[in-house]
Design a protein around this nucleic acid. Structure first.
Lengths: 150, 150
DNA sequence: TATATTTGCATCGTAAACGATATAATTAAC
DNA sequence: GTTAATTATATCGTTTACGATGCAAATATA
């Protein structure tokens, strides 16, 4: 008999991995209609909150490495969503700025959050219980990101 | 001002995506010491529970497509963890079977679940509260996997 | 000020993910 | 019993992720 800890049904990581992938897939039809991928959508969320950020700030906000974000931004630049230009204060930085096309996508994607939100609602995950889930995930993210940066 | 629904801090999917990635990174040193990746570890979990399964069963168990699992299994075959052989009953199937090396890894990875388990424990995520989190994630996975298969 | 270290970004290689498509084997329909 | 539809894998192309490494600019140190 297999040890309890090795059963797939007892794995938190597998659940997170699966839920993340499936929920990302739920975004797919909504985003691909506008030529976007989910990580590209995340970059837009970051820049809609605060435009004209260096690569490093975007990467840190998303808990990603710059070697993941750089090519991602290059593709978004190629599709006309943003521009990348050398920083004036610090010449090492690349400042990422939304184009009009990138800004306007916010209006076109206005119903994405609600649409996806509706697809995840179930018995124990509702607008009322979401804060509990958010707290648990936030604490884990906080602890893990600390530990991985040592 | 950005709409509330677009704020990164209000996104469930981003939390799941981040928690999943960071927790997977926590597995990395433990698994790479044995030449494994996290998805490969998941395949081992599946096969340790039940050996000699067709590709399709493994893929369904992991909520993955066969075009993801096939190359994954090919790499694991190349590293000597398993063998793939045509099914006798149904010649279309590829039956995946662990080698001695693949089976023995279970002993060598014996402390992985506990080690990773300790790294995620935080105020609101403990062995006592885990079932709540499991239920929420399971319901979401169940609902999403249904919706995506229509 | 010259040198060493750090920082910000980029490039490269490998391994997932996944949509689209192809191919062979099985099953269904006629 | 052919032909059509389905099923089980596999292949291909594109986009992430991420470790390792490189390079130029900025900062710290001698």
């Amino acid at each position: 008999m297999i040890k309890e800890e090795f059963k797939l049904d007892n794995q938190l990581c597998f659940r997170l991995y699966t839920a993340s992938r499936l929920l990302t897939q739920a975004y797919h039809p909504l985003l691909s209609a506008h030529g976007l991928t989910y990580p590209q959508y995340l970059v837009l969320l970051v820049l809609w909150e605060k435009d004209a950020q260096p690569v490093n700030d975007i990467a840190r906000r998303l808990f990603l490495e710059t070697n993941t974000v750089t090519p991602l931004l290059q593709r978004m630049e190629n599709s006309g969503l943003l521009t990348r230009s050398k920083g004036t204060k610090d010449a090492r930085q690349m400042i990422v700025t939304l184009t009009a096309k990138g800004r306007n996508l916010q209006k076109k994607l206005a119903d994405v959050p609600a649409t996806v939100g509706n697809t995840v609602i179930c018995e124990h995950v509702t607008p009322e219980t979401a804060p509990v889930l958010f707290t648990m995930l936030d604490e884990m993210i906080d602890k893990l990101s600390r530990q991985l940066n040592d």
